[in-house]
Design a protein around this nucleic acid. Structure first.
Length: 271
DNA sequence: CGTGTGCCCTGACAGC
DNA sequence: TGCTGTCAGGGCACAC
């Protein structure tokens, strides 16, 4: 489920319960996800007080006192379950506070958990390699122009590259390209200035709107076994193969495969 | 360096 | 009711 808006919504949902709380207990139900759990995780987190939560790209950050930060990535299938009524076979890590229990559930185990010193987070190699936050001030048409210049990869592939923009995934790349009316196979270095001028707000808007919609479901998220889903009904192209383009220009949404992943677009309005 | 290809893993769904 | 094949929000190792 998790692209940037879903991680942001997850972090906000967790913060309502976790921020300021003391972690009483940490339980690992297996040794690893994509990577082994950090050896010091249980010791550093147990008894610590959560001082804040934040997000970088698709990573969620739980900051605690004593200068440590737990970094989680939800991969393809990860989610946090708050106060689950019954255990799930894929609850791999549990955190307990005085009032709540939090289960990191991830059936496919493409997610990860890391532990870093808070003051060294910017230098953490996975963060140091990331491009700018799409909702921050550094994503501009001029930045994209420079970052994409000379690249022969498709614009679809480049927007999925976390080194160019951090946090976009398959859904929101498709959606942003549709909004900006850019063909997903367009060579990155050949995307025009007017297209880039449309692309930046398209990215910001689609992410902001999704966060806004996700935020409205925090009530559901807080339910015992609440899951956070995508709002498929609000997608313009993703998963809509064969449907009429919502621009009502007579186009039909098509599905192609790029780099082994599906892309949906309208061949009439995206050029 | 930039680019393309598989693979990690489980579950949901379609078709037989 | 099985089976079997396909596909899924991501990231990374590896080959050229």
């Amino acid at each position: 489920m998790p692209e940037l808006p879903e991680v942001e919504t997850t972090v906000r949902g967790l913060a309502r319960f976790l921020d300021g709380a003391r972690i009483e207990r940490v339980v690992l139900n297996r040794p690893d996800l994509r990577r082994p759990f950090p050896p010091a995780l249980v010791q550093r987190m147990t008894g610590a007080v959560v001082t804040g939560l934040s997000r970088r790209a698709k990573y969620g950050l739980i900051h605690v006192d004593r200068g440590a930060t737990m970094i989680f990535h939800l991969g393809m299938s990860g989610r946090w379950r708050i106060d689950p009524e019954r255990p799930d076979a894929h609850d791999h890590l549990l955190i307990e506070t005085a009032h709540n229990r939090f289960a990191l559930c991830d059936p496919r185990r493409f997610g990860s958990v890391d532990l870093e010193e808070t003051e060294l987070l910017d230098a953490w190699p996975r963060f140091a390699a990331l491009g700018p936050e799409p909702l921050g001030p550094d994503l501009t048409p001029a930045y994209l122009k420079a970052a994409l210049s000379g690249r022969v990869q498709s614009i679809k592939a480049c927007l999925l590259d976390q080194r160019i923009v951090a946090g976009l995934g398959n859904i929101y790349v498709c959606e942003a390209l549709w909004r900006a009316r850019i063909h997903p196979k367009k060579k990155s270095g050949k995307v025009t200035k007017p297209q880039l001028a449309r692309l930046v707000p398209a990215i910001r808007d689609v992410l902001s709107e999704s966060i806004r919609d996700g935020g409205s479901t925090l009530r559901d998220y807080a339910a015992p076994d609440g899951a956070l889903g995508y709002f498929a009904s609000s997608f313009d192209v993703y998963g809509r193969e064969g449907e009429t383009c919502r621009r009502e220009d007579g186009g039909t949404v098509r599905r192609i495969v790029q780099g082994g992943r599906s892309t949906w677009y309208c061949a009439r309005c995206q050029r």
